[in-house]
Every structure is written in structure tokens, then in C-alpha cells.
Write a protein that binds this DNA or RNA. Structure first.
Length: 267
DNA sequence: CTGCGATTC
DNA sequence: GAATCGCAG
């Protein structure tokens, strides 16, 4: 008689424990998917945007989608981890053609005496954790023509603020590029297009609830505070045709990308 | 930090 | 072309 009761109790306990465990796992999984936290284990692969050009190239420190017609990337994406931040000073190497771009990346000569900077999209300052990572940003597939006062000015301020956020929020994912449409000037024999606007999109999945932030800047120097350039991710998608953060669960993605609220980001 | 240009070999 | 140096915001 006692045996029977013990057996029943044991079964009830087993079911309860198993059930709770399964429930707990499910909750965790939903949370992980919602926050895109699996990105942690897959660095810059997880949050890659879609490519409108069909030519995605992966490097150790960043990935890019190359637009042959504009001779520059339509986006450059990478994770800026807190551990990447460093004060090391590496000597600047020479710019090199990215051999991984099969259609042929632009030669740096296009920029020579053009009046435009060779502007990094994955900044050298974000890849200072090793000489190799640093030097890898000097591939011309990571470069876009930028006015010097813009590059060294408001764009540089935004990059420094991004490093501030990477430190504060334990890493952020970054996607940057020029808006490659409309009428654009070109420079050099290969006719590298000069974007009229540049964008930067950020996502933080490592500190609390996932949050996004997007910037759209005219290609001109500005002393305005950075929050004045905040737009929704949807706005950038509309202008570029690129789909960002599609790995997120749809309702989460839609909600975050429609918002231009920046109150949960510290400026 | 973001860069360019002159000079030298 | 490669490396070094100085300069500017």
C-alpha cells in the first residue's frame, strides 16, 4: 500500500519538475530570440543586414556588402564589444584593394587629390584590439568618399559616441554606410560615388531589453547635437532598401524599427 | 580621434 | 611605391 502511494508521489514530483523545467526553458528561449542574444555566440554573423547587391564579404573584424556600381560598400557591419575597446596606437598602413571583392574593389588612387577623405565605415578606432584587425579596416571595400570636415567632425563624434555606448552597454552591433541613391558626384577613374547622406544603425542586446538607434546625417559638417540626427530604422530601410535585424522575432523587430525614440540611450 | 600632403630613397 | 615626417580640425 505504501509502495503505491510513494510511486504516485514520485511520479507527480517528476512530472512537476519536468514540466517546470520545460516551461523555464521555453521562457528562456523566447527571451533569447526576442533579444537576439544568440548574436553573442556568433559575433558579426547574426545581425547581418540583407544585401541588395548580392556580394557579401566577410572579414575577421567586419562584414560588408559591396556595391560595384558605386565602388564602395552599401553597408559595413560588425560587433563592437566592450573588450574591443583599446587605447593602443598602431601606425596607419596603406590602403589596399580588397581581394575578396570579386568584382574588384576600388583603388585608393580614386581618392588621391579628389578633395575627399578615404572615410572608414568600420573605423580603425573600433578595431584596435590587434594590429591585424586594425590594418584590415584599411581595405578600400571599407572606405567611402567623405568631406574631411564631416569625417573628422560630426561623423567622428558619432563614432566616438558609439564607443561610449559599447562600453556602457557591454557591446553594440553597428551597421554603417552611405545612402547610395539619387544623383551623386563621382571621383576618380573608377567613378566612386560620393553619397549625399550617411547612416548608422545600432542595436544593443546585452544590457536589459533590446534597443535600437538609427542616425541619418547629411554629408556636411554640423555642430548640432547627435540626437538631432536620430531617425527610425524603418526610415533607413526605406532609403536604402536594406532590411536590418530581420533575425529578431517579427513583432519585436517591427516595434523597435518603427521607433525614433532615443530616451533609453544615454547621450 | 579623423585624416592629407611633402619629402626622401 | 614605401616609409617618414609634419600639419590640421
Amino acid at each position: 500500500m505504501n509502495k503505491k502511494i510513494y510511486s504516485i508521489i514520485a511520479i507527480i514530483i517528476l512530472v512537476a519538475v519536468y514540466g517546470y523545467d520545460a516551461y523555464f526553458d521555453q521562457q528562456v528561449e523566447e527571451q533569447v530570440v526576442a533579444q537576439g542574444a544568440t548574436a553573442k555566440t556568433n559575433t558579426n554573423e547574426y545581425f547581418l543586414p540583407t544585401s541588395t547587391t548580392g556580394q557579401v564579404v566577410h572579414h575577421e573584424g567586419y562584414s560588408l556588402s559591396y556595391s560595384e556600381t558605386h565602388e564602395q560598400p552599401e553597408w559595413v557591419a560588425y560587433e563592437l564589444k566592450k573588450s574591443h575597446l583599446s587605447n593602443t596606437n598602431f601606425k596607419r598602413p596603406y590602403f589596399e584593394i580588397d581581394k575578396a571583392v570579386k568584382t574588384g574593389a576600388a583603388h585608393w588612387r580614386n581618392y588621391k587629390n579628389s578633395g575627399y577623405d578615404r572615410g572608414h565605415l568600420c573605423p580603425a578606432g573600433d578595431r584596435k584590439y590587434s594590429q591585424a584587425a586594425h590594418d584590415e579596416t584599411f581595405l578600400t571595400s571599407n572606405i567611402t568618399p567623405q568631406k574631411h570636415d564631416f569625417n573628422a567632425g560630426v561623423w567622428n563624434r558619432l563614432e566616438q559616441k558609439t564607443r561610449y555606448w559599447a562600453n556602457k552597454y557591454d557591446g553594440v552591433f553597428v551597421v554603417s554606410g552611405g545612402i547610395l541613391n539619387g544623383k551623386m558626384k563621382t571621383i576618380g577613374e573608377e567613378k566612386v560615388a560620393v553619397p549625399n547622406q550617411f547612416y548608422k544603425v545600432l542595436i544593443d542586446v546585452n544590457s536589459g531589453e533590446a534597443k535600437m538607434l538609427a542616425f541619418l546625417l547629411d554629408h556636411k559638417e554640423s555642430k548640432e547635437p547627435l540626437y538631432k540626427f536620430v531617425v527610425s530604422v524603418d526610415e533607413i530601410e526605406k532609403r536604402t532598401g536594406i532590411d536590418f535585424f530581420s533575425q529578431l522575432e517579427d513583432t519585436v523587430e517591427n516595434r523597435l524599427e518603427a521607433s525614433a525614440v532615443y530616451s533609453n540611450w544615454s547621450f
